[in-house]
Nucleic acid binder design. Structure first.
Length: 282
DNA sequence: GGGCAGGTCTAAG
DNA sequence: CTTAGACCTGCC
């Protein structure tokens, strides 16, 4: 089978897929991971050398290099945090984290689904939506479907989404957001280039997108590493490790952006993984 | 069984 | 501008 062997440091599939950024991966018994993105299915094998199986060089060049953020120097990134003794154990714990660059529409919808939800249920819903509205992906591993385009999901029925994909009260938000995106109501260039506050505001035009989801989308799909998504876990971790007290989620986000600057999103990922895996602040 | 989970929306102060 | 309550669903 075709494969790409990566010459990278700071790449641990477990860290990457379990730090809360992606929902379409599946762990195999041997510890490797299947991942669906960009209409492809690959197997990711970690270790001293990282292997992308079922990937050819073209896909590597045009998809995976960017998807896995392979052109970023993570050693330098970590080094730039070296003055922060609080962050240090978190970085060591999640040393193989990389912030993925995911597809915008899929990221928007999956994080709308993530609101007040649990990871296994989010994953089930996303898989189900793909099998209902996506296209079949031929691959050597399993039945897999691409995530549908906005034009398709815009025509879906909320009732079906609720009944079969089990998305609950997020049903209409998904369809309405898809319609707005299909109709060009969201200016992606603002999301990419405008100051972070404007980008957040643009994204929050969508139903189901509040501050937290907006920050996730900007970080995980638009390379906006100055955004600092605050969920219950990050709130707990930040309050326990940095703030030493209780403040609102918006204040935590403000604090994070100020504290970590352009690299806030990376700090968030290390802290999230560290905090969640160790039940910090609970 | 009531509580809770990777928030958002709405209606109020 | 900040805050309480409701909200699908599934599992403990």
């Amino acid at each position: 089978m075709e494969k790409i062997v990566l010459d990278v440091d700071s790449f641990n599939p477990e860290h990457i897929f379990k730090c809360g950024q992606a929902f379409r991966w599946r762990e195999l018994e041997d510890g490797s991971y299947l991942n669906i993105a960009h209409g492809k299915v690959i197997r990711v094998v970690g270790g001293s050398e990282v292997i992308l199986e079922n990937a050819n060089f073209i896909d590597y060049q045009y998809i995976w290099k960017n998807y896995f953020d392979l052109e970023r120097d993570y050693s330098a990134l970590k080094e730039s945090f070296s003055g922060d003794s609080i962050l240090k154990p978190a970085i060591e714990y999640g040393s193989g984290i990389r912030v993925l660059n995911q597809e915008p529409f899929e990221t928007i919808i999956t994080f709308i689904i993530s609101a007040n939800n649990q990871i296994p249920r989010i994953k089930n819903a996303v898989d189900k939506i793909a099998s209902m509205y996506g296209e079949k992906i031929s691959n050597p591993y399993l039945d897999a479907y691409s995530f549908p385009k906005a034009e398709v999901l815009a025509e879906a029925s909320p009732k079906d989404l609720r009944e079969f994909a089990r998305v609950g009260f997020r049903d209409e938000r998904i369809v309405e957001a898809s319609k707005l995106i299909r109709d060009g109501e969201i200016d992606f260039s603002i999301l990419e280039n405008s100051p972070i506050d404007e980008a957040r505001k643009e994204l929050m035009k969508l139903p189901g997108v509040g501050p937290k989801v907006a920050d996730c989308v900007l970080l995980f799909a638009f390379k906006r590493s100055e955004s600092f998504p605050v969920d219950v876990w990050i709130k707990r971790v930040m309050e326990e490790l940095y703030i030493k007290g209780t403040i609102s989620k918006n204040k935590v986000a403000e604090y994070g952006r100020k504290q970590f600057g352009n690299l806030a999103g990376f700090a968030q990922q290390y802290l999230f993984y560290y905090g969640r895996e160790n039940d910090l602040g609970k």
